[in-house]
Write a protein that binds this DNA or RNA. Structure first.
Length: 429
RNA sequence: GGAGCUGUAGUGUAGCCGGUUUAACAUGCCAGCCUGUCACGCUGGAGAUCGCGGGUUCGAGUCCCGUCAGCUCCGCCA
């Protein structure tokens, strides 16, 4: 008999089916036992009559055969009257280290992460990665539909995009290499290679000594780079469009998950913008907070997020016109204001989820910038050489996938949005 | 790199200005009863050398030092 998923049982009411899954919960009433069966599609109630069952415990892997019956007394109006229950795989634990079947997560983050396979079985935790999957899927769909090519760039690299201090060194045969902190150089090179528009879903590695609820040392970067732009506003426009698409598609594809997290997604509309200068003036005026040249710290991000939400109703805010000193060497300076760059950040609920901007496409300008930044152009040979052969005006941005997931679901810690987070202390599981 | 906080059954917490219990509560676990549960209920039971090491003291889960682990924040960033 073909396997039926919990979700599909309803369509087979009156028929005999075979279901497979885990014992989510047992309610033993003596001569009657209710078994909640969990599979990848969800939960369904199985009714076992009599006392004669195989040894069932929570999380035992079982196969059930029985008739699908519609019943007002069943949790979802449908249940399985079991004729046969078979243990496919027994459990051997003394205690479950965490509650797989609770509606709320009471365990601490450490317990959740140490027992990741079990915590991911909890439907609430499970849902986080269904949402994340849909974010990535929507990202791919959206950009493919606009003529972007999906690329895969190396994660073992020779030099960093912003220096070398925050990179993980790798012993690479007889020399030293690093884990890529960003696909920056390579995605620009793919624009130059004639693909014009590229995107990548890939890991980025940061050896920063940070230990906060919004930082990981390994994270998924949703990268975009496109050629033949007018300026950074083209990039902001397409990111804005992507977010509107995402917010349309997510409720359709994982509305249940958002409901569980009590989140309602509404069209972000046109995202408001402030220059860094305007934002600083506003922070000074509204909150008496002064910041050093071009700096927007974490507290400022939160305040701006709150302010914009109150003023415009938007959860998003673009910050633009960052000073040269606050941006990497490849950031395009403004023609009429060379101390500022054509770059932007995107805040979502008071947290930076994107950095982007127009890049320098002139070989000479880039070379001179590197010298001005105290970098040795020879260290960037293959990247710098690219610009000798005709690179269109271009730019791009990157979205932190875990950060977006976290903010969408209002998670308290970014580690919850990573299957197996890597932070300063954690390399296992 | 800097700063602060926490560590008590499987899990989540209480107890913490030294002595009142055999360290409490919830949940989970085990056993028994129950044919409509849905966080099932009821009865009974097991489960903690209070992270580890040292010190102060007549006496330490409680105070001090060290150590390990975790969390949070700053800088930096997605």
């Amino acid at each position: 008999m073909e396997r039926t998923l919990a979700k599909e049982a309803r369509q087979k009411t009156g028929r005999r089916v075979r279901l497979c899954g885990w014992v989510h919960r047992l309610r033993d009433l003596g001569n009657l036992t209710f078994l909640m069966l969990r599979d990848r599609s969800g939960l369904i109630q199985v009714v076992l009559e009599g006392k004669d069952h195989p040894e069932l415990r929570q999380e035992t892997v079982v196969q059930v055969e029985g008739k699908v019956v519609a019943s007002d007394k069943a949790p979802d109006g449908v249940e399985i009257q079991a004729a046969k229950v078979e243990v496919l795989s027994a459990v051997e634990y003394d205690y479950l280290p965490l509650a797989v079947n609770s509606g709320v997560i009471k365990e601490g983050l450490d317990t959740i992460l140490n027992h990741r396979v079990l915590s991911l079985r909890n439907p609430l935790v499970h849902g986080i990665f269904l949402v994340q999957q849909e974010i990535v899927r929507a990202f791919r769909e959206f950009f493919r539909n606009r003529g972007f090519t999906e690329i895969h760039t190396p994660k073992i690299v020779a030099e960093g995009a912003e220096g070398g201090a925050e990179m993980f060194p790798v012993k690479y045969f007889k020399r030293r290499a690093y884990l890529a902190q960003s696909p920056q150089f390579y995605k620009q090179m793919m624009v130059a290679a004639g693909y014009e528009r590229v995107f990548e879903v890939g890991h980025a590695y940061r050896a920063e000594l940070h230990n906060t609820k919004r930082h990981l040392n390994e994270y998924i970067s949703l990268d975009v780079e496109m050629g033949f732009i007018q300026d950074e506003h083209d990039l902001m426009a397409i990111e804005n469009e992507f977010l509107r698409y995402l917010f349309t598609v997510l409720p359709e594809r994982c509305g249940e998950e958002f409901a569980k997290y009590g989140v309602e997604l509404t069209d972000p509309g046109a995202i408001p913008e402030l220059t860094v200068g305007e934002a600083q003036a506003l922070l000074k005026k509204e909150y008496g907070k002064s910041l050093a040249g071009g700096n927007i710290d974490a507290e400022a991000e939160k305040l701006l997020g709150r302010y914009i939400k109150a003023k415009t109703g938007s959860d998003f805010l673009f910050l633009t016109a960052f000073p040269v000193a606050k941006r990497p060497v490849y950031a395009m300076p403004m023609a009429d204001e060379p101390a500022l760059t054509k770059s932007f950040d995107l805040l979502y609920k008071g947290l930076e989820i994107t950095t982007g901007g127009q890049r320098i496409h002139s070989h000479r300008m880039l070379y001179e910038k590197m010298v001005a930044f105290g970098l040795n152009p020879e260290d960037f040979g293959f990247y710098l050489d690219t610009f000798k052969y005709g690179v269109p005006p271009h730019g791009g941005f990157a979205i932190g996938c875990e950060r977006l997931t976290m903010q969408l679901l209002n998670l308290a810690n970014i580690r919850e949005a990573s299957l197996f987070p890597r932070d300063m202390e954690r390399v296992t599981p």
